[in-house]
Amino acid sequence: MHASVSVVFVLALYLSEAFCQSRIVGGKDAGTFLGRHLAQLVISYEDADYVGLCTATVIAPRWLLTAAHCFSGPSGSTSAIPAATYAFVGETDATLRIDNTDIEPYWAKQIHVHKNFKPGTAGHRSDIAMVYLDRVIPPQQLATVVLDKNLPPFGSAVMAAGYGTLGKNAAKATILMKAPVLLKPFSVCVDREHPFFRKYLKLWSHLCAVSVGWPTRGSTDTCAGDSGGPLFKFDRDTRRIRQFGITSFGTSDCAEAGSVSWYTRVSTFIGDVHRNIRRNSTVWNSFTS
């Protein structure tokens, strides 16, 4: 179904005034080193005038890791199968793709959404998905993240990265961005949420982080266009990106003072991910885009 979607049209739409997705707030250019580990996902649906943008990380030569809710359809509440999904791997500047036929996207051959994810439910439990690409990323381009079972100390600064615009009603950025956020204990974040919402949050599924300057000031955060992107630390000893979270959702405006952002806890799903790469897992709902 690749022919049904114009890559150039979608990218032009992304850069136009009519199409606005939020992104990293208070961040800066992520740079080419981090960019090689990430991909921008473009997700389109035949039955709706809708194109979704998400972020993903490279975890193997033909595999990307992202958020399951990226494939929940235009309404965000159904398990809609996209007409086409493709990824730009390691390309951090969207403007370079317009009318440039030398930049060929990777098409999604299969999409695997965790069976425990329920579209349209509060809390986005098990918000994790894997994308199997149509071809191998070349060795000279390949840079994979490390999925980390261990969390940094609570209160420490970690990094988030993603694509989109610079914030609510802000000018659009065209490059991959990163920003520091502060990792917080689950109990601290749950106490900030509405009592109705708390019952949907689970320690085994969720991590939380807050803006630098929290709770009196909001300066850095993730937003909708960052969905699927990593919460990570850079390991200076090994020079590897160590990912322990996937950007999932927030219940307040981006970078609002006192707000909390929620991430999928990667450590819970590492076994499922590795078994799926080996084609030895039954906990994923798979479909062809």
Results as ranks from 00 to 15, higher is better:
residue 6 S to T: 07
residue 8 V to K: 11
residue 11 L to S: 03
residue 13 L to K: 14
residue 19 F to H: 14
residue 21 Q to W: 10
residue 21 Q to I: 10
residue 22 S to K: 11
residue 25 V to N: 00
residue 27 G to Y: 03
residue 31 G to S: 13
residue 31 G to T: 13
residue 32 T to W: 07
residue 35 G to R: 04
residue 37 H to E: 01
residue 40 Q to D: 00
residue 42 V to H: 12
residue 46 E to N: 03
residue 48 A to I: 08
residue 50 Y to C: 11
residue 52 G to R: 10
residue 52 G to I: 02
residue 57 T to I: 00
residue 59 I to K: 01
residue 63 W to R: 05
residue 70 C to Q: 02
residue 79 S to M: 12
residue 79 S to A: 15
residue 82 P to S: 08
residue 82 P to I: 03
residue 83 A to G: 13
residue 85 T to E: 05
residue 85 T to Q: 09
residue 89 V to D: 00
residue 91 E to V: 15
residue 91 E to T: 12
residue 93 D to Y: 09
residue 93 D to V: 07
residue 94 A to N: 08
residue 97 R to T: 15
residue 97 R to M: 15
residue 100 N to L: 10
residue 101 T to G: 06
residue 104 E to Q: 11
residue 109 K to T: 06
residue 111 I to Y: 01
residue 113 V to N: 10
residue 115 K to T: 13
residue 128 I to M: 04
residue 130 M to I: 04
residue 132 Y to Q: 14
residue 132 Y to F: 15
residue 138 P to S: 13
residue 139 P to T: 13
residue 142 L to M: 01
residue 143 A to Y: 01
residue 158 V to Y: 05
residue 160 A to N: 03
residue 167 G to Q: 09
residue 170 A to V: 05
residue 170 A to Q: 13
residue 176 L to F: 08
residue 178 K to A: 15
residue 180 P to R: 08
residue 180 P to E: 10
residue 186 F to K: 09
residue 186 F to G: 07
residue 190 V to C: 12
residue 191 D to H: 10
residue 191 D to Q: 14
residue 193 E to N: 12
residue 195 P to C: 10
residue 203 L to M: 07
residue 205 S to Y: 14
residue 205 S to K: 06
residue 209 A to M: 07
residue 210 V to L: 08
residue 211 S to R: 02
residue 215 P to L: 06
residue 220 T to L: 01
residue 222 T to V: 15
residue 230 P to H: 08
residue 231 L to W: 03
residue 231 L to D: 04
residue 232 F to V: 02
residue 236 R to F: 10
residue 238 T to M: 09
residue 243 Q to I: 04
residue 245 G to P: 04
residue 249 F to T: 03
residue 250 G to C: 10
residue 250 G to R: 11
residue 255 A to N: 03
residue 258 G to R: 06
residue 258 G to Q: 05
residue 259 S to K: 08
residue 260 V to T: 14
residue 260 V to A: 10
residue 262 W to S: 06
residue 271 G to M: 09
residue 272 D to N: 07
residue 273 V to M: 07
residue 273 V to D: 00
residue 275 R to Y: 05
residue 286 S to K: 15
residue 287 F to W: 02
residue 289 S to V: 14
residue 289 S to P: 15
